[in-house]
Design a protein around this nucleic acid. Structure first.
Lengths: 115, 115
DNA sequence: CCGCATCCACCACGATACTG
DNA sequence: CAGTATCGTGGTGGATGCGG
């Protein structure tokens, strides 16, 4: 019954709400960046060091998207040399729980995804 | 602490496991089709009727992907006229719970995603 | 230190038309 | 009924180089 209700919740509006979320977090790096910022406030260069696989361009782009979506806050200190810090907003932190559920599923069922 | 552990779970392998899952379900229609097949076995045309927004091409392609990934089973009955039925596999059903968590988050926080 | 600009390959997605 | 074939478009993401 809970599952039947679940499918309805997903299909409710034709999946638009769920897709709107996926469109914003399902790119290659967004969730990884959010997870890296968990309970930390990091500078741009710190993020680069923590995520060496992310190109500079995509790190900038993804951070801008996350900022626009209200998941990450950007603080530019007017200093020399420049210093910019990124942190999760309340909304960003609340996203970690759903992401964690997906990550758990990936660990348990990832092997069942062929190829 | 659970959350701290959560971020580690997400970042564990550089996010590869989570991305592997997202790459497969984050397209425009996959999760919607999975939700539509919840506890039902449907024919191709039934799916088209339930999901009018999905073009015929994308329905075919997405079903093929879901089948390849082991989330959906395809049964072609050798009859005239042809009859093909789609249903969730055990793995496919297990995906509904994480999807539901995301859908709930979308309902609660979707309004906070600007623009 | 923190980016932005440019160029380019690739793929998701849609529209349309056709088939066993 | 259940697809396949073809074409076209937009967006993503990598490499590289420049700028304040």
């Amino acid at each position: 019954m809970a599952e039947q209700e679940g499918a309805c919740l997903i299909r409710g509006d034709g999946g638009a709400a769920l897709r709107a979320v996926l469109d914003r977090i399902a790119d290659k790096w967004a969730l990884l960046i959010v997870a890296t910022l968990d309970r930390r406030r990091l500078r741009f260069t710190d993020l680069r060091r923590e995520l060496p696989a992310v190109s500079q361009r995509m790190l900038t782009r993804t951070l801008r998207n996350l900022e626009r979506d209200g998941l990450v806050s950007r603080t530019a200190h007017r200093e020399v040399p420049p210093r910019v810090e990124y942190a999760l907003t309340a909304t960003g932190r609340s996203l970690l729980a759903p992401a964690l559920v997906l990550a758990r599923w990936a660990r348990e069922h990832g092997a069942e995804l062929e190829r």
